[in-house]
Amino acid sequence: MSDGGRNSLPAEVAAEIEALRPRYPTEEALLLPALHLMQKAAGGWLSQASIAAVAEHLGLPPSKVAGVVSFYDMFHEHPVGRHRVRLCTNLSCQLRGSDQLMDVLRAELGVGPGEVTGDGRCSWVEFECLGSCDTAPMAMIDDDYHENLTPDRLRAALKGLD
């Protein structure tokens, strides 16, 4: 994102942020939407350079933006896999076998929670309730919900990722 010092937003991200501006009475309110857009464009995580670029675009102190990034679970300050698995392990999913799915993730991916596979393809984390407890156990893979998982169905979903 950074070209050796100058922090600039990709043009399409800047344009999308500008399109949202009329919705809010303050500049600051654009921050969460801007961070979502930036993170998506930047491979799923927010580097210091990305944070600085967003800060500069919105005229906010970088420290303020970094503080917001660190507060929310969906923003990542460190590189993540090309595909991100969020396995729900909250109570309703725990009651229906999410422990066993954690074992599947460990075995299939060969890494622990929060780690990225050697080829950069995948990372996984335990996640809090994703509001899909009627189809427990479940996981969110990238932007999609995978519901009513079994060990086999989880393995198949992982195989389907490029």
């Binding site: 909250n90 809090e128 509001g131 899909s132 009627d134």
Partner: peptide
């Protein structure tokens, strides 16, 4: 926001 564990009605 529907983040209370167990809740999925608003979705």
């Amino acid at each position: 926001d529907e983040s209370e564990p167990g809740t999925f009605k608003d979705r």
